[in-house]
Design a protein around this nucleic acid. Structure first.
Lengths: 215, 215, 215, 215
DNA sequence: CATGAATGAGCGTTCATTCAT
DNA sequence: TATGAATGAACGCTCATTCAT
């Protein structure tokens, strides 16, 4: 005979298990919709991927999408934010605040370009909708908040005279710009961006922002 | 009585004059449509600018646009090509194959960023539709043909050991990438990209692609 | 030890009690749905009040409504009938078959207009859906059955020469029509329908259907 | 040989003829849409008659409707106003400011009920949408402006002591209410509203608003 | 050649209804 | 029995494109 406590406990666990299942199912469906949207929007563009197609490809009803996202614009914005977070996370992967500034820079820089190359859809999506009129400003501002740690690195590097005393915006442009261009050229022309080339480019970028004597 | 030859000649001239007029009118109308499209597409985005609005703003009938462009996609593509040509032309403005490589580089680089800043609509348009799925690949390849002279400069610079021996793609990415990023930040955040900052950035770009000892 | 009879009886009572509870709960829920529907439909109109909203406002699940009503149309029809019954009941409140015909008429008439003014939602609902295509004819015929007692009054009044010998339909129109119009004007224009004005109007209505010399 | 004046005149007439044709075509199409809408909305109700059905029944494209009406709501509102104007016009048909007040009243009253009976669709439409939430208030106010002449009649009648000194709203309710009720009953129950019955009813209405001694 | 009225396919979105839990 | 997530048909509306004038 099972003790009443054990039974109660079982029932409670059973319920919380179910709740978790339901929650997970919902999360999964959200995720499914987002990923399907990413696929299609990258392939066809925002306006050429009707909600109905997303639903079809996701294997769900069109109306279901509206249970998870207020409308198409919100869906895109959430996808945007989700990807941005992944990008930042990837960039900071295995990053430690140790070693020379150059080493730390190269770590971050390579993480980022690696992600762009390995996740072409995410990269294309972000680049395509970066300044599209229907990506809300709030989303763009959010970006800056999550970018905080990286900004901190730049500021420190400048203070330590490892980097030139350039405005933050200039530094970002000098480092992020080439990544975008390289990734675009890589993906568009299907030409191999080898380890060697990535290294060359990262060295060149460091040359752009660092003092010459500062090796 | 007028000689038949003269009359024939007059008639021929008359006709060719008319043809030229018509041609010019036609050219003007093409131009008018393209410029109006640029204005509207930059402001509202491709899918938010109906053909009817372009016609209205251009002061012509909607059907007329279809006499000059096969359809909306072709219109965008032609606009894309037209702007690209203007960009290259602006980049090569006052460019002479004289002086040091650095000087020549800085001339080209500044010409380009200057154009982007002074022609925000053209810049935004190109950036926005650069990798949009409905901009045909042909157009993108055409770009490379008109970019010929600039490529030539890079090849020469490398040969003269003024530039590092990097793949052309890498060089383009290192120089063009920051321009795009800077211009975007400038236009988006309305923060002044002063002469000083432009110079700083161009110096940094040169540092990226040139040998350190190579001043 | 309890006698088996008593136990049986207890169980039976227990069951019938439960049944009654369930019945009451069911009745309550039906009522709750109907009232919520009335509120919302009056405020937003039939097609602007989704089932889901009714469910939400009623604090129940959307599916539950379908346990009580076959579909939305049936729900409206039942609401219609329910309100009609209330109207008739209100009209006959404190009505006695005594006094002069005029007095009795005025009692009924005032009861009716009073109800319309005091229950604007019910009034509006009935008026709005009176001849809507989706209110079934059966419902309208039912009205006539419950209107029996009032019809009786008209017939008697005519027989007693207190009322003109007009067709029943004409009498109804002459008495009910002004009530609807007055109530509509009252509710729509928020102008006070004072006791005095109600009395004036009821007198006028009596003048319409009674013989002049018949005071 | 035709004189140049005549030719010019012909051309001018020709053009204006064409313009008129175009104008008429447009007017005709507007009218066609309005009448088709009236038919369908009366039959099925506003929300049960999709734009697509109106287009189909009118033999035009769905999009065409939007060239003539901003949206569905506007279409309904314009139909509402158009019908109201017809009603007022019908009411004032052959009306002269001569004869006794009673005669004049009966003329107006009979005109109105006649119109309601002879134009059941127009009548039903107005009654159905009179206080529907999507009929704008402006439209309702417009009604009062076109009703001006009739209001004038009431005011004069009261001043001449032909009518009781009742508020205007009360008079309207006493006279218009029965018309609506009679017409509804007539149309709903398919029972003949004979000349005799109409006369009886109009007499009764006059009794309602006039002084007894005032024959 | 230029026009713009007409078209209708196709979109985003809603919501009555179902059904697994 | 009650729920509410899921569905998908159906809606209002837009706009690229055509074609009679």
């Amino acid at each position: 005979m099972i003790s009443s406590d054990l039974l109660t406990s079982f029932v409670r666990n059973e319920r919380s298990f179910r709740l978790r299942m339901i929650e997970n199912q919902a999360t999964d469906k959200r995720f499914l919709i987002l990923e399907t949207t990413l696929d299609l929007v990258t392939e066809y563009g925002f306006h050429a991927t009707p909600i109905s197609l997303i639903a079809q490809r996701a294997g769900i009803g069109a109306g279901t999408i509206y249970r998870y996202f207020e409308n198409k614009e919100h869906l895109i914005n959430e996808l945007f934010t989700a990807i941005k977070k992944r990008v930042i996370k990837a960039m900071l992967k295995d990053y430690r605040e140790e070693g020379t500034y150059k080493e730390r820079f190269k770590h971050l820089w390579r993480n980022l370009i690696q992600y762009c190359i390995e996740h072409p859809k995410e990269f294309q999506f972000v680049e395509q909708y970066r300044y599209a009129p229907y990506v809300s400003n709030m989303t763009r501002e959010e970006t800056f908040i999550i970018l905080g740690p990286i900004m901190q690195f730049f500021i420190e590097s400048k203070r330590a005279k490892a980097m030139k005393d350039l405005p933050l915006y200039t530094i970002i442009a000098l480092l992020y710009g080439p990544i975008v261009s390289l990734a675009k050229l890589h993906l568009d022309h299907n030409q191999q961006l080898t380890e060697e080339r990535i290294d060359q480019a990262s060295e060149a970028c460091w040359d752009a922002v660092s003092y010459k004597e500062n090796e």
